[in-house]
């Protein structure tokens, strides 16, 4: 396998694809949104439970490729316990990392750094950002639908 392919499909990504964390619908969510990538048909629903301005619980359901599933899974882990403002900053940091003009890694992204390799795969960037667009929609106008287009 070539190096950049290994960079894309790192163990962490394969693991989160196979056993996505927080993969469940949330009955008592305060915020939720659907995300859709019309190019490939990937679908995701992201749920958020807020408490005192903090994302107390974050979960998702949906169907998609390894990149979108792992990205969603890692995102839910990272966003738990963050404020809305911090979540927004992480969204920006993640987007810059995978699609910004120059390679950059936001310090707070933690394990999500494994997705940095996506920037070498232009056709797959939207797979990685789908869940993030969706959580942003959930926070800004819950009940809405996010699209990568």
């Amino acid at each position: 396998m070539t190096t950049d392919l290994r960079d894309l499909y790192q163990e962490v990504i394969l693991d989160h694809n196979k056993r996505p964390r927080n993969f469940r619908a949330m009955e008592d969510a305060d915020r939720q949104a659907d995300g859709h990538n019309p190019l490939c048909g990937d679908k995701v629903t992201v749920y958020v439970k807020m408490e005192d301005g903090i994302l107390r619980d974050v979960s998702f359901v949906g169907s998609g490729c390894a990149i979108s599933t792992a990205s969603a899974s890692l995102m839910t882990e990272l966003l738990k316990g963050k404020t809305e403002g911090e979540a927004r900053a992480l969204f920006q940091g993640f987007r810059d990392m995978v699609a910004g003009p120059a390679p950059s890694v936001h310090a707070g992204l933690g394990k999500l750094k494994v997705l940095a390799g996506v920037r070498e795969f232009p056709a797959r960037i939207k797979c990685a950002t789908l869940a993030w667009h969706t959580v942003k929609t959930a926070l800004e106008h819950s009940g809405g639908t996010a699209s990568t287009e």
């Binding site: 070539t2 499909y9 998609g64």
Partner: peptide, 14 residues
Amino acid sequence: DGAHPHDIGTILDH
């Protein structure tokens, strides 16, 4: 099983 068509497409491309 276990591999989404897009992942298959990317790996085959390589």
